[in-house]
Design a protein around this nucleic acid. Structure first.
Length: 565
RNA sequence: GAGCGCGUAGCUCAGGUGGUAGAGCAACGCACUUUUAAUGCGUGGGUCCUGGGUUCGAGUCCCAGCGCGCUCACCA
Protein backbone atom coordinates (compact mmCIF):
# COMPACT_ATOMS: atom_id res chain seq x y z
CA UNK A 1 0.00 0.00 0.00
CA UNK A 2 2.79 2.44 0.81
CA UNK A 3 4.71 3.96 -2.06
CA UNK A 4 7.74 4.63 0.10
CA UNK A 5 9.20 4.87 3.56
CA UNK A 6 8.12 8.49 3.47
CA UNK A 7 4.48 7.45 3.20
CA UNK A 8 4.94 4.81 5.87
CA UNK A 9 6.35 7.40 8.24
CA UNK A 10 3.52 9.85 7.49
CA UNK A 11 1.02 7.09 8.11
CA UNK A 12 2.65 6.23 11.45
CA UNK A 13 2.79 9.88 12.46
CA UNK A 14 -0.90 10.28 11.77
CA UNK A 15 -1.77 7.22 13.81
CA UNK A 16 0.08 8.98 16.60
CA UNK A 17 -2.04 12.09 15.99
CA UNK A 18 -5.20 9.98 16.08
CA UNK A 19 -4.19 8.77 19.55
CA UNK A 20 -3.74 12.36 20.68
CA UNK A 21 -7.11 13.32 19.22
CA UNK A 22 -8.67 10.43 21.08
CA UNK A 23 -6.91 11.57 24.26
CA UNK A 24 -8.63 14.96 23.83
CA UNK A 25 -11.95 13.13 24.08
CA UNK A 26 -12.87 12.91 20.38
CA UNK A 27 -13.92 9.61 18.81
CA UNK A 28 -11.57 9.19 15.84
CA UNK A 29 -14.09 7.52 13.52
CA UNK A 30 -17.48 8.91 14.57
CA UNK A 31 -20.48 7.85 12.52
CA UNK A 32 -22.38 11.08 11.97
CA UNK A 33 -22.37 14.82 11.90
CA UNK A 34 -25.56 16.87 12.15
CA UNK A 35 -25.05 19.54 9.50
CA UNK A 36 -27.44 22.44 9.17
CA UNK A 37 -26.34 23.26 5.62
CA UNK A 38 -24.43 21.76 2.76
CA UNK A 39 -21.62 23.95 1.53
CA UNK A 40 -23.52 24.21 -1.73
CA UNK A 41 -26.52 25.60 0.11
CA UNK A 42 -24.40 28.15 1.97
CA UNK A 43 -22.78 29.29 -1.23
CA UNK A 44 -26.15 29.60 -2.91
CA UNK A 45 -27.72 31.54 -0.06
CA UNK A 46 -24.93 33.74 1.31
CA UNK A 47 -22.44 34.28 -1.50
CA UNK A 48 -23.83 37.76 -2.03
CA UNK A 49 -24.52 38.59 1.63
CA UNK A 50 -22.56 41.62 2.77
CA UNK A 51 -20.40 41.87 5.84
CA UNK A 52 -22.99 44.17 7.42
CA UNK A 53 -25.99 41.89 6.92
CA UNK A 54 -24.07 38.92 8.25
CA UNK A 55 -23.18 40.95 11.34
CA UNK A 56 -26.68 42.27 11.88
CA UNK A 57 -28.55 38.95 11.45
CA UNK A 58 -26.02 36.41 12.59
CA UNK A 59 -26.33 33.11 10.68
CA UNK A 60 -25.48 30.00 12.71
CA UNK A 61 -24.33 27.03 10.69
CA UNK A 62 -23.07 23.48 11.17
CA UNK A 63 -21.08 22.30 8.17
CA UNK A 64 -18.69 19.49 7.28
CA UNK A 65 -16.06 18.90 4.68
CA UNK A 66 -12.57 17.79 3.75
CA UNK A 67 -9.72 20.14 4.63
CA UNK A 68 -8.11 21.24 1.36
CA UNK A 69 -5.97 24.03 2.79
CA UNK A 70 -4.89 24.86 6.29
CA UNK A 71 -3.07 27.97 7.50
CA UNK A 72 -2.23 28.25 11.17
CA UNK A 73 -1.24 31.56 12.64
CA UNK A 74 -0.25 31.24 16.24
CA UNK A 75 -3.35 31.17 18.37
CA UNK A 76 -5.70 31.29 15.41
CA UNK A 77 -5.90 29.73 11.99
CA UNK A 78 -7.82 29.15 8.79
CA UNK A 79 -8.81 26.07 6.89
CA UNK A 80 -10.72 25.52 3.67
CA UNK A 81 -13.40 22.83 3.69
CA UNK A 82 -14.52 21.09 0.51
CA UNK A 83 -17.76 19.20 0.16
CA UNK A 84 -19.23 17.99 -3.10
CA UNK A 85 -16.71 20.06 -4.98
CA UNK A 86 -17.72 23.27 -3.20
CA UNK A 87 -15.33 25.10 -0.89
CA UNK A 88 -15.83 27.27 2.16
CA UNK A 89 -13.27 28.81 4.47
CA UNK A 90 -13.41 28.47 8.24
CA UNK A 91 -11.68 30.60 10.87
CA UNK A 92 -10.63 29.02 14.16
CA UNK A 93 -9.38 31.17 17.02
CA UNK A 94 -8.42 29.95 20.43
CA UNK A 95 -10.53 32.44 22.33
CA UNK A 96 -13.60 31.21 20.41
CA UNK A 97 -13.09 27.44 20.47
CA UNK A 98 -11.20 27.22 23.77
CA UNK A 99 -7.85 25.65 24.39
CA UNK A 100 -8.92 21.97 23.90
CA UNK A 101 -10.68 22.92 20.67
CA UNK A 102 -7.58 24.66 19.44
CA UNK A 103 -5.43 21.69 20.34
CA UNK A 104 -7.63 19.62 18.05
CA UNK A 105 -7.22 22.20 15.26
CA UNK A 106 -3.47 21.90 15.59
CA UNK A 107 -3.67 18.13 15.10
CA UNK A 108 -5.53 18.49 11.78
CA UNK A 109 -3.93 17.74 8.41
CA UNK A 110 -4.76 18.45 4.81
CA UNK A 111 -7.31 15.91 3.67
CA UNK A 112 -8.94 15.36 7.07
CA UNK A 113 -12.72 15.51 7.33
CA UNK A 114 -14.16 17.71 10.07
CA UNK A 115 -17.47 19.26 11.04
CA UNK A 116 -17.75 22.70 12.61
CA UNK A 117 -20.41 24.90 14.14
CA UNK A 118 -20.20 28.68 14.14
CA UNK A 119 -21.50 31.72 12.35
CA UNK A 120 -20.90 33.30 8.97
CA UNK A 121 -18.84 36.44 8.52
CA UNK A 122 -16.61 38.08 5.97
CA UNK A 123 -12.89 38.47 6.51
CA UNK A 124 -10.99 41.67 5.93
CA UNK A 125 -10.40 40.56 2.35
CA UNK A 126 -14.11 39.84 1.90
CA UNK A 127 -14.12 36.06 1.90
CA UNK A 128 -17.22 34.34 3.24
CA UNK A 129 -16.01 32.38 6.27
CA UNK A 130 -17.37 30.35 9.18
CA UNK A 131 -16.31 31.76 12.53
CA UNK A 132 -15.96 28.47 14.39
CA UNK A 133 -17.43 27.83 17.84
CA UNK A 134 -16.92 24.06 17.99
CA UNK A 135 -14.92 21.52 16.00
CA UNK A 136 -15.82 17.88 15.50
CA UNK A 137 -13.25 15.48 14.15
CA UNK A 138 -14.74 13.15 11.50
CA UNK A 139 -11.98 11.22 9.71
CA UNK A 140 -8.27 11.44 9.02
CA UNK A 141 -6.26 11.43 5.83
CA UNK A 142 -3.47 9.01 6.67
CA UNK A 143 -1.56 9.73 3.48
CA UNK A 144 -0.29 13.08 2.19
CA UNK A 145 -2.28 14.90 -0.50
CA UNK A 146 -0.77 15.85 -3.86
CA UNK A 147 0.68 19.29 -4.40
CA UNK A 148 -1.98 21.83 -3.54
CA UNK A 149 -1.37 24.24 -6.40
CA UNK A 150 -0.88 21.96 -9.40
CA UNK A 151 -3.08 19.17 -8.11
CA UNK A 152 -2.60 15.65 -9.40
CA UNK A 153 -1.32 16.11 -12.95
CA UNK A 154 0.24 12.77 -13.86
CA UNK A 155 -2.28 11.20 -16.24
CA UNK A 156 -1.49 7.67 -15.20
CA UNK A 157 -1.87 8.45 -11.50
CA UNK A 158 -5.10 10.30 -12.20
CA UNK A 159 -6.65 7.24 -13.86
CA UNK A 160 -5.26 4.73 -11.38
CA UNK A 161 -6.15 6.76 -8.30
CA UNK A 162 -9.31 8.43 -9.50
CA UNK A 163 -10.39 8.89 -5.87
CA UNK A 164 -7.56 11.40 -5.46
CA UNK A 165 -8.09 12.93 -8.89
CA UNK A 166 -11.74 13.60 -8.09
CA UNK A 167 -11.24 15.57 -4.91
CA UNK A 168 -8.12 17.36 -6.14
CA UNK A 169 -9.29 18.46 -9.59
CA UNK A 170 -12.60 20.28 -9.80
CA UNK A 171 -12.84 20.03 -13.60
CA UNK A 172 -12.60 16.24 -13.43
CA UNK A 173 -15.50 16.15 -11.04
CA UNK A 174 -17.43 18.42 -13.41
CA UNK A 175 -17.01 15.98 -16.32
CA UNK A 176 -18.66 13.18 -14.37
CA UNK A 177 -21.43 15.42 -13.11
CA UNK A 178 -22.13 16.24 -16.76
CA UNK A 179 -21.95 12.60 -17.73
CA UNK A 180 -24.72 11.90 -15.21
CA UNK A 181 -26.68 14.80 -16.70
CA UNK A 182 -26.33 13.24 -20.17
CA UNK A 183 -27.83 9.98 -18.91
CA UNK A 184 -30.62 11.81 -17.10
CA UNK A 185 -31.47 13.86 -20.19
CA UNK A 186 -31.46 10.75 -22.37
CA UNK A 187 -33.84 8.90 -20.10
CA UNK A 188 -36.12 11.91 -19.89
CA UNK A 189 -36.17 12.30 -23.67
CA UNK A 190 -37.12 8.68 -24.31
CA UNK A 191 -39.46 8.32 -21.35
CA UNK A 192 -41.41 11.35 -22.56
CA UNK A 193 -41.84 9.68 -25.94
CA UNK A 194 -43.28 6.47 -24.57
CA UNK A 195 -40.13 4.35 -24.63
CA UNK A 196 -39.70 1.63 -22.02
CA UNK A 197 -36.27 1.23 -20.42
CA UNK A 198 -35.25 -2.43 -20.38
CA UNK A 199 -32.26 -4.55 -19.44
CA UNK A 200 -31.17 -7.42 -21.65
CA UNK A 201 -28.43 -9.99 -21.10
CA UNK A 202 -24.83 -8.85 -20.88
CA UNK A 203 -23.76 -12.51 -20.82
CA UNK A 204 -24.80 -14.07 -24.09
CA UNK A 205 -24.30 -17.51 -25.61
CA UNK A 206 -23.94 -15.85 -29.03
CA UNK A 207 -22.29 -12.42 -29.20
CA UNK A 208 -24.28 -10.66 -31.90
CA UNK A 209 -25.56 -7.31 -33.07
CA UNK A 210 -22.22 -5.83 -34.12
CA UNK A 211 -18.97 -6.64 -35.83
CA UNK A 212 -16.46 -7.06 -33.03
CA UNK A 213 -14.43 -9.59 -31.10
CA UNK A 214 -16.09 -10.53 -27.80
CA UNK A 215 -14.71 -11.37 -24.37
CA UNK A 216 -15.30 -14.94 -23.33
CA UNK A 217 -16.29 -16.16 -19.90
CA UNK A 218 -17.56 -19.38 -18.39
CA UNK A 219 -20.49 -20.40 -16.26
CA UNK A 220 -19.44 -23.23 -13.95
CA UNK A 221 -22.77 -24.76 -12.93
CA UNK A 222 -24.05 -24.90 -16.51
CA UNK A 223 -20.55 -25.64 -17.78
CA UNK A 224 -21.00 -23.37 -20.79
CA UNK A 225 -18.92 -20.63 -22.34
CA UNK A 226 -20.61 -17.27 -22.54
CA UNK A 227 -19.69 -14.02 -24.20
CA UNK A 228 -19.87 -10.55 -22.76
CA UNK A 229 -22.17 -8.75 -25.10
CA UNK A 230 -20.85 -6.63 -27.94
CA UNK A 231 -24.33 -5.12 -28.44
CA UNK A 232 -27.85 -5.54 -27.04
CA UNK A 233 -29.37 -5.22 -30.52
CA UNK A 234 -30.74 -8.67 -31.16
CA UNK A 235 -32.39 -8.92 -27.74
CA UNK A 236 -34.00 -5.51 -28.06
CA UNK A 237 -35.53 -6.44 -31.38
CA UNK A 238 -36.86 -9.65 -29.84
CA UNK A 239 -38.65 -7.35 -27.40
CA UNK A 240 -40.21 -5.39 -30.25
CA UNK A 241 -41.44 -8.71 -31.66
CA UNK A 242 -42.87 -9.26 -28.19
CA UNK A 243 -44.92 -6.08 -28.48
CA UNK A 244 -42.72 -3.67 -26.56
CA UNK A 245 -42.99 -1.23 -29.43
CA UNK A 246 -40.61 1.37 -28.06
CA UNK A 247 -37.68 0.19 -25.94
CA UNK A 248 -34.32 1.56 -24.97
CA UNK A 249 -31.38 0.31 -22.98
CA UNK A 250 -28.42 2.20 -21.60
CA UNK A 251 -25.61 -0.03 -20.49
CA UNK A 252 -22.18 -1.41 -21.10
CA UNK A 253 -20.92 -3.20 -24.17
CA UNK A 254 -17.63 -5.07 -24.21
CA UNK A 255 -15.36 -5.41 -27.20
CA UNK A 256 -12.08 -7.24 -27.05
CA UNK A 257 -10.20 -4.87 -29.29
CA UNK A 258 -7.68 -2.09 -29.21
CA UNK A 259 -7.58 0.78 -26.76
CA UNK A 260 -7.31 4.34 -28.00
CA UNK A 261 -8.48 7.85 -27.19
CA UNK A 262 -11.82 6.79 -28.68
CA UNK A 263 -12.03 3.17 -27.54
CA UNK A 264 -12.28 1.58 -24.12
CA UNK A 265 -12.86 -2.19 -23.90
CA UNK A 266 -16.06 -1.56 -21.97
CA UNK A 267 -18.13 1.39 -23.06
CA UNK A 268 -21.65 2.62 -22.52
CA UNK A 269 -24.17 2.65 -25.30
CA UNK A 270 -27.73 3.77 -25.67
CA UNK A 271 -29.74 1.61 -28.01
CA UNK A 272 -33.36 2.26 -28.81
CA UNK A 273 -35.95 0.74 -31.13
CA UNK A 274 -39.14 2.25 -32.37
CA UNK A 275 -41.80 0.21 -34.14
CA UNK A 276 -43.37 1.70 -37.28
CA UNK A 277 -40.41 4.05 -37.75
CA UNK A 278 -37.72 3.96 -40.42
CA UNK A 279 -34.28 5.48 -40.70
CA UNK A 280 -35.62 8.81 -41.93
CA UNK A 281 -37.67 9.11 -38.75
CA UNK A 282 -34.55 8.34 -36.72
CA UNK A 283 -32.54 11.01 -38.54
CA UNK A 284 -35.14 13.56 -37.50
CA UNK A 285 -35.21 12.19 -33.98
CA UNK A 286 -31.41 12.31 -33.72
CA UNK A 287 -31.31 15.93 -34.82
CA UNK A 288 -33.76 16.67 -32.02
CA UNK A 289 -32.16 14.44 -29.38
CA UNK A 290 -28.58 15.71 -29.49
CA UNK A 291 -29.31 19.45 -29.12
CA UNK A 292 -31.91 18.66 -26.45
CA UNK A 293 -29.30 16.83 -24.39
CA UNK A 294 -26.77 19.59 -24.98
CA UNK A 295 -29.22 22.17 -23.67
CA UNK A 296 -29.97 20.09 -20.57
CA UNK A 297 -26.30 19.43 -19.86
CA UNK A 298 -24.60 22.66 -20.91
CA UNK A 299 -27.44 25.12 -21.36
CA UNK A 300 -26.27 25.68 -24.92
CA UNK A 301 -26.01 23.71 -28.14
CA UNK A 302 -22.49 25.01 -28.74
CA UNK A 303 -19.45 23.12 -27.55
CA UNK A 304 -15.72 23.34 -28.15
CA UNK A 305 -13.93 20.18 -29.15
CA UNK A 306 -10.28 20.05 -30.24
CA UNK A 307 -10.28 23.87 -30.31
CA UNK A 308 -13.15 23.91 -32.81
CA UNK A 309 -16.57 25.30 -31.95
CA UNK A 310 -19.30 22.85 -32.80
CA UNK A 311 -22.98 23.73 -32.98
CA UNK A 312 -24.99 20.65 -32.12
CA UNK A 313 -28.18 22.21 -33.44
CA UNK A 314 -26.92 22.58 -37.02
CA UNK A 315 -26.84 19.35 -38.99
CA UNK A 316 -25.93 18.34 -42.48
CA UNK A 317 -26.77 15.15 -44.31
CA UNK A 318 -24.94 13.37 -47.11
CA UNK A 319 -25.28 9.93 -48.58
CA UNK A 320 -22.11 7.91 -48.23
CA UNK A 321 -21.63 8.17 -51.97
CA UNK A 322 -22.02 11.95 -51.92
CA UNK A 323 -19.53 12.19 -49.07
CA UNK A 324 -16.90 10.20 -50.94
CA UNK A 325 -17.22 12.46 -53.96
CA UNK A 326 -17.35 15.62 -51.82
CA UNK A 327 -14.07 14.74 -50.10
CA UNK A 328 -12.43 13.12 -53.12
CA UNK A 329 -8.95 14.69 -53.09
CA UNK A 330 -8.87 17.80 -55.32
CA UNK A 331 -5.57 16.65 -56.80
CA UNK A 332 -7.37 13.61 -58.21
CA UNK A 333 -9.44 15.93 -60.38
CA UNK A 334 -12.87 14.92 -61.59
CA UNK A 335 -12.07 11.22 -61.63
CA UNK A 336 -14.90 10.44 -59.22
CA UNK A 337 -18.51 10.05 -60.25
CA UNK A 338 -21.70 8.49 -58.97
CA UNK A 339 -21.36 5.78 -61.63
CA UNK A 340 -18.14 4.46 -60.11
CA UNK A 341 -20.16 2.86 -57.29
CA UNK A 342 -22.12 0.74 -59.73
CA UNK A 343 -19.58 -1.98 -60.39
CA UNK A 344 -16.17 -3.26 -59.39
CA UNK A 345 -14.81 -2.47 -62.83
CA UNK A 346 -15.98 1.15 -62.74
CA UNK A 347 -14.59 1.73 -59.26
CA UNK A 348 -11.28 0.16 -60.18
CA UNK A 349 -11.17 2.40 -63.23
CA UNK A 350 -11.87 5.49 -61.16
CA UNK A 351 -9.19 4.57 -58.62
CA UNK A 352 -6.63 4.04 -61.35
CA UNK A 353 -7.60 7.30 -63.00
CA UNK A 354 -7.26 9.10 -59.66
CA UNK A 355 -3.88 7.53 -58.96
CA UNK A 356 -2.73 8.63 -62.38
CA UNK A 357 -3.30 12.24 -61.33
CA UNK A 358 -0.76 11.94 -58.56
CA UNK A 359 2.90 12.33 -59.42
CA UNK A 360 4.47 8.90 -59.76
CA UNK A 361 6.17 7.33 -56.77
CA UNK A 362 8.87 6.01 -59.05
CA UNK A 363 10.10 8.45 -61.71
CA UNK A 364 9.21 7.42 -65.22
CA UNK A 365 6.29 5.19 -64.30
CA UNK A 366 2.58 5.66 -64.19
CA UNK A 367 0.83 5.21 -60.87
CA UNK A 368 -1.60 2.36 -60.67
CA UNK A 369 -3.15 0.10 -58.11
CA UNK A 370 -0.93 -2.11 -55.99
CA UNK A 371 2.31 -0.21 -56.16
CA UNK A 372 2.28 -0.50 -52.40
CA UNK A 373 1.75 -3.68 -50.46
CA UNK A 374 -1.86 -3.72 -49.34
CA UNK A 375 -1.35 -5.15 -45.84
CA UNK A 376 -1.71 -1.78 -44.25
CA UNK A 377 -2.30 1.51 -46.03
CA UNK A 378 -1.08 3.70 -43.22
CA UNK A 379 1.83 1.73 -41.90
CA UNK A 380 4.37 3.06 -44.32
CA UNK A 381 6.15 6.16 -43.02
CA UNK A 382 6.10 9.41 -44.93
CA UNK A 383 9.74 8.91 -45.85
CA UNK A 384 9.01 5.58 -47.46
CA UNK A 385 6.19 6.98 -49.53
CA UNK A 386 7.77 10.30 -50.36
CA UNK A 387 11.50 10.33 -49.67
CA UNK A 388 12.83 13.79 -48.95
CA UNK A 389 13.80 15.60 -52.14
CA UNK A 390 12.52 12.73 -54.22
CA UNK A 391 8.90 13.71 -54.41
CA UNK A 392 6.82 16.51 -55.81
CA UNK A 393 3.81 15.48 -53.76
CA UNK A 394 2.65 18.56 -52.06
CA UNK A 395 0.95 17.42 -48.95
CA UNK A 396 0.71 14.53 -46.59
CA UNK A 397 -2.97 14.48 -47.53
CA UNK A 398 -2.06 13.57 -51.08
CA UNK A 399 0.22 10.80 -49.94
CA UNK A 400 -2.40 9.41 -47.65
CA UNK A 401 -5.05 9.59 -50.34
CA UNK A 402 -2.77 7.78 -52.76
CA UNK A 403 -2.01 5.13 -50.17
CA UNK A 404 -5.69 4.74 -49.50
CA UNK A 405 -6.50 4.40 -53.21
CA UNK A 406 -3.75 1.86 -53.57
CA UNK A 407 -5.00 -0.08 -50.60
CA UNK A 408 -8.69 -0.19 -51.44
CA UNK A 409 -7.86 -0.75 -55.11
CA UNK A 410 -5.78 -3.73 -54.19
CA UNK A 411 -8.57 -5.03 -51.93
CA UNK A 412 -10.92 -4.73 -54.89
CA UNK A 413 -8.59 -6.61 -57.19
CA UNK A 414 -8.18 -9.30 -54.53
CA UNK A 415 -11.94 -9.91 -54.54
CA UNK A 416 -13.11 -7.93 -51.52
CA UNK A 417 -16.83 -7.13 -51.71
CA UNK A 418 -17.53 -3.87 -53.54
CA UNK A 419 -19.60 -2.55 -50.64
CA UNK A 420 -16.80 -3.13 -48.17
CA UNK A 421 -14.36 -1.27 -50.37
CA UNK A 422 -16.75 1.66 -50.72
CA UNK A 423 -17.19 1.83 -46.92
CA UNK A 424 -13.41 1.76 -46.52
CA UNK A 425 -13.07 4.56 -49.04
CA UNK A 426 -15.59 6.62 -47.12
CA UNK A 427 -13.80 6.18 -43.80
CA UNK A 428 -10.46 7.04 -45.33
CA UNK A 429 -11.59 10.11 -47.24
CA UNK A 430 -14.47 11.66 -45.36
CA UNK A 431 -14.57 10.73 -41.69
CA UNK A 432 -11.92 13.15 -40.45
CA UNK A 433 -13.80 16.05 -42.08
CA UNK A 434 -17.03 15.38 -40.21
CA UNK A 435 -16.45 17.83 -37.38
CA UNK A 436 -19.81 19.59 -37.39
CA UNK A 437 -22.80 17.30 -36.80
CA UNK A 438 -23.26 15.22 -39.94
CA UNK A 439 -25.51 12.35 -40.90
CA UNK A 440 -24.10 9.94 -43.46
CA UNK A 441 -26.82 7.73 -44.89
CA UNK A 442 -27.35 4.85 -47.30
CA UNK A 443 -24.69 2.25 -46.53
CA UNK A 444 -23.53 -0.70 -48.63
CA UNK A 445 -25.37 -3.93 -47.96
CA UNK A 446 -22.06 -5.76 -47.57
CA UNK A 447 -21.24 -4.00 -44.30
CA UNK A 448 -24.78 -4.04 -42.91
CA UNK A 449 -26.01 -7.57 -42.15
CA UNK A 450 -28.96 -6.41 -40.02
CA UNK A 451 -30.31 -3.50 -42.07
CA UNK A 452 -33.18 -3.36 -44.52
CA UNK A 453 -32.36 -2.89 -48.19
CA UNK A 454 -33.40 0.22 -50.07
CA UNK A 455 -36.46 -0.63 -52.17
CA UNK A 456 -34.89 0.36 -55.50
CA UNK A 457 -31.23 -0.37 -54.77
CA UNK A 458 -30.77 -3.85 -53.32
CA UNK A 459 -27.02 -3.35 -52.88
CA UNK A 460 -27.66 -0.44 -50.52
CA UNK A 461 -29.43 -0.36 -47.16
CA UNK A 462 -31.47 2.12 -45.15
CA UNK A 463 -28.77 2.89 -42.64
CA UNK A 464 -27.04 6.01 -41.35
CA UNK A 465 -24.29 6.94 -38.97
CA UNK A 466 -23.80 10.34 -37.45
CA UNK A 467 -20.51 12.02 -36.82
CA UNK A 468 -19.38 14.86 -34.57
CA UNK A 469 -15.83 16.02 -33.91
CA UNK A 470 -14.41 13.72 -36.57
CA UNK A 471 -15.65 10.44 -35.19
CA UNK A 472 -18.75 8.27 -35.21
CA UNK A 473 -21.23 8.73 -32.39
CA UNK A 474 -24.21 6.77 -33.58
CA UNK A 475 -25.40 4.13 -35.97
CA UNK A 476 -28.99 3.53 -37.00
CA UNK A 477 -31.09 1.72 -39.55
CA UNK A 478 -34.40 0.46 -40.72
CA UNK A 479 -34.29 -3.01 -39.21
CA UNK A 480 -34.30 -6.00 -41.50
CA UNK A 481 -37.46 -7.89 -40.55
CA UNK A 482 -37.64 -10.55 -43.27
CA UNK A 483 -36.56 -13.80 -41.54
CA UNK A 484 -35.63 -15.51 -44.81
CA UNK A 485 -33.39 -12.64 -45.87
CA UNK A 486 -31.94 -12.38 -42.36
CA UNK A 487 -31.07 -16.05 -42.44
CA UNK A 488 -29.31 -15.59 -45.77
CA UNK A 489 -27.36 -12.62 -44.41
CA UNK A 490 -26.20 -14.71 -41.46
CA UNK A 491 -25.13 -17.45 -43.86
CA UNK A 492 -23.14 -14.92 -45.86
CA UNK A 493 -21.53 -13.74 -42.66
CA UNK A 494 -20.59 -17.31 -41.83
CA UNK A 495 -18.88 -17.43 -45.18
CA UNK A 496 -16.94 -14.26 -44.29
CA UNK A 497 -16.01 -15.86 -41.01
CA UNK A 498 -14.63 -18.89 -42.79
CA UNK A 499 -12.62 -16.60 -45.02
CA UNK A 500 -10.94 -15.30 -41.87
CA UNK A 501 -13.06 -12.36 -40.76
CA UNK A 502 -13.10 -12.89 -37.00
CA UNK A 503 -15.64 -10.12 -36.61
CA UNK A 504 -18.21 -11.45 -39.03
CA UNK A 505 -21.59 -12.06 -37.50
CA UNK A 506 -22.44 -15.45 -36.02
CA UNK A 507 -25.62 -17.34 -36.91
CA UNK A 508 -28.39 -16.73 -34.38
CA UNK A 509 -31.18 -19.20 -35.12
CA UNK A 510 -33.33 -18.01 -32.25
CA UNK A 511 -33.21 -14.44 -33.55
CA UNK A 512 -34.35 -15.65 -36.95
CA UNK A 513 -37.15 -17.56 -35.20
CA UNK A 514 -38.14 -14.38 -33.36
CA UNK A 515 -38.30 -12.51 -36.70
CA UNK A 516 -40.43 -15.37 -38.02
CA UNK A 517 -43.15 -14.41 -35.57
CA UNK A 518 -43.22 -10.98 -37.20
CA UNK A 519 -41.17 -7.87 -36.40
CA UNK A 520 -43.11 -4.75 -37.39
CA UNK A 521 -41.26 -2.23 -39.53
CA UNK A 522 -38.85 -0.82 -36.97
CA UNK A 523 -36.07 1.73 -36.74
CA UNK A 524 -33.22 1.20 -34.31
CA UNK A 525 -30.25 3.27 -33.25
CA UNK A 526 -27.19 3.06 -31.02
CA UNK A 527 -25.38 6.06 -29.58
CA UNK A 528 -22.03 5.98 -27.80
CA UNK A 529 -22.58 7.71 -24.47
CA UNK A 530 -18.88 8.05 -23.72
CA UNK A 531 -18.20 9.75 -27.02
CA UNK A 532 -21.20 12.02 -26.70
CA UNK A 533 -19.93 12.98 -23.26
CA UNK A 534 -16.51 13.69 -24.78
CA UNK A 535 -18.07 16.10 -27.25
CA UNK A 536 -20.21 17.79 -24.59
CA UNK A 537 -17.31 18.21 -22.14
CA UNK A 538 -14.54 18.90 -24.64
CA UNK A 539 -12.62 15.81 -23.48
CA UNK A 540 -10.13 14.58 -26.05
CA UNK A 541 -9.73 11.12 -24.57
CA UNK A 542 -12.48 8.62 -23.77
CA UNK A 543 -10.54 7.81 -20.61
CA UNK A 544 -11.32 11.28 -19.32
CA UNK A 545 -15.05 10.50 -19.34
CA UNK A 546 -14.77 7.00 -17.84
CA UNK A 547 -14.26 6.93 -14.07
CA UNK A 548 -12.04 3.88 -14.04
CA UNK A 549 -10.64 3.25 -17.51
CA UNK A 550 -8.97 -0.11 -18.00
CA UNK A 551 -5.29 0.02 -17.08
CA UNK A 552 -2.69 -2.66 -17.13
CA UNK A 553 -2.29 -3.70 -13.48
CA UNK A 554 0.91 -2.49 -11.92
CA UNK A 555 3.25 -5.29 -10.97
CA UNK A 556 5.47 -4.78 -7.97
CA UNK A 557 9.12 -5.35 -8.78
CA UNK A 558 9.36 -8.29 -6.37
CA UNK A 559 6.40 -9.98 -8.08
CA UNK A 560 7.84 -9.31 -11.50
CA UNK A 561 11.12 -10.93 -10.44
CA UNK A 562 9.25 -13.89 -8.99
CA UNK A 563 7.23 -14.32 -12.19
CA UNK A 564 10.25 -14.23 -14.46
CA UNK A 565 11.98 -16.94 -12.44
C1' G B 1 -0.04 -4.67 -33.04
C1' A B 2 3.52 -0.42 -35.15
C1' G B 3 5.96 4.49 -34.73
C1' C B 4 7.18 8.67 -31.59
C1' G B 5 7.61 10.77 -26.66
C1' C B 6 7.89 10.50 -21.33
C1' G B 7 9.46 7.90 -16.45
C1' U B 8 14.32 12.07 -10.94
C1' A B 9 11.57 13.07 -3.18
C1' G B 10 4.45 11.74 -1.43
C1' C B 11 3.09 15.78 -5.40
C1' U B 12 4.70 19.57 -9.36
C1' C B 13 9.20 19.99 -11.76
C1' A B 14 14.90 21.54 -12.67
C1' G B 15 19.27 18.75 -13.60
C1' G B 16 24.15 22.08 -21.52
C1' U B 17 28.67 18.39 -24.08
C1' G B 18 29.36 11.89 -18.31
C1' G B 19 32.47 14.07 -12.50
C1' U B 20 29.62 13.04 -4.91
C1' A B 21 21.41 14.55 -6.78
C1' G B 22 18.28 20.11 -6.53
C1' A B 23 13.87 23.63 -5.87
C1' G B 24 8.76 24.62 -4.48
C1' C B 25 4.64 22.31 -2.18
C1' A B 26 3.74 18.36 1.36
C1' A B 27 6.14 16.33 6.17
C1' C B 28 8.61 17.42 11.11
C1' G B 29 10.17 21.51 14.91
C1' C B 30 9.75 26.84 16.40
C1' A B 31 7.30 31.88 15.88
C1' C B 32 2.92 34.44 14.43
C1' U B 33 -5.21 35.94 16.60
C1' U B 34 -8.45 38.24 9.46
C1' U B 35 -4.96 34.43 6.18
C1' U B 36 -5.99 32.59 1.25
C1' A B 37 -0.21 29.28 -3.65
C1' A B 38 -0.04 32.94 4.07
C1' U B 39 4.92 34.34 6.03
C1' G B 40 9.87 33.81 8.64
C1' C B 41 13.73 30.45 10.78
C1' G B 42 15.38 25.38 11.17
C1' U B 43 15.28 19.71 10.15
C1' G B 44 14.50 15.17 7.71
C1' G B 45 13.27 12.79 3.08
C1' G B 46 15.89 9.58 -3.24
C1' U B 47 16.91 1.46 -5.75
C1' C B 48 17.08 9.07 -10.57
C1' C B 49 11.21 2.92 -13.71
C1' U B 50 13.88 -2.21 -13.93
C1' G B 51 18.05 -5.20 -15.72
C1' G B 52 22.42 -5.42 -18.46
C1' G B 53 26.57 -2.83 -21.09
C1' U B 54 30.42 1.15 -22.27
C1' U B 55 33.59 4.04 -18.85
C1' C B 56 38.39 5.32 -13.80
C1' G B 57 33.31 7.30 -13.13
C1' A B 58 26.30 6.87 -15.71
C1' G B 59 20.29 10.50 -13.61
C1' U B 60 23.08 11.73 -18.23
C1' C B 61 25.67 7.40 -23.42
C1' C B 62 24.25 2.19 -25.62
C1' C B 63 21.02 -2.41 -25.46
C1' A B 64 16.81 -5.04 -23.54
C1' G B 65 12.44 -4.94 -20.66
C1' C B 66 8.19 -2.61 -17.84
C1' G B 67 4.50 1.33 -17.32
C1' C B 68 2.02 5.57 -19.26
C1' G B 69 0.78 9.21 -23.11
C1' C B 70 0.18 10.61 -28.30
C1' U B 71 -0.37 9.12 -33.50
C1' C B 72 -1.75 5.06 -36.57
C1' A B 73 -4.04 0.19 -37.21
C1' C B 74 -8.62 -2.68 -35.39
C1' C B 75 -13.23 -0.63 -34.03
C1' A B 76 -18.00 2.37 -31.85
Amino acid sequence: MYESEFEQSVFDLRREKLKQIEALGHPVYPNSFAASHTLTAIRAEYDTATSETLEKDRVSVAVAGRIMAIRAQGKAGFAVLQQNGVRLQIYVRMDAVGEPGFQLYKLLDMGDHIGVTGYLFRTRTGELTVHVDTLKFLSKAMLPLPEKYHGLADVELRYRQRYVDLFMNADVREVFVKRAAVLRAMRKFFDERGFLEVETPMMQPIAGGAAAKPFTTHHNALDIDLFLRIAPELYLKRLVVGGLDRVYEINRNFRNEGISTQHNPEFTMLEFYQAYANYHDLMDLTEELIPTIAMEVNGTTKTVFNDVEIDLSKWQRFTMREAIIKWWPPEAGDTASMEMFDSREKLEGALNAALGKFPPTTPGTENEISLIEPDDPYQASEDEIAPAGHSSWETVQNQRAAMLFNYVGRCLVDGEALGKVIAELFEGLAEEHLIQPTIIYDFPLAVSPLSKQKPNEPEWVERFEFYIGGFELGNAFSELNDPVEQRNRFLQQLGERERGDAEAHAMDEDYVRALSFGLPPTGGEGIGIDRLTMVLTGSRSIRDVILFPLMRPQVKQADADAMSE
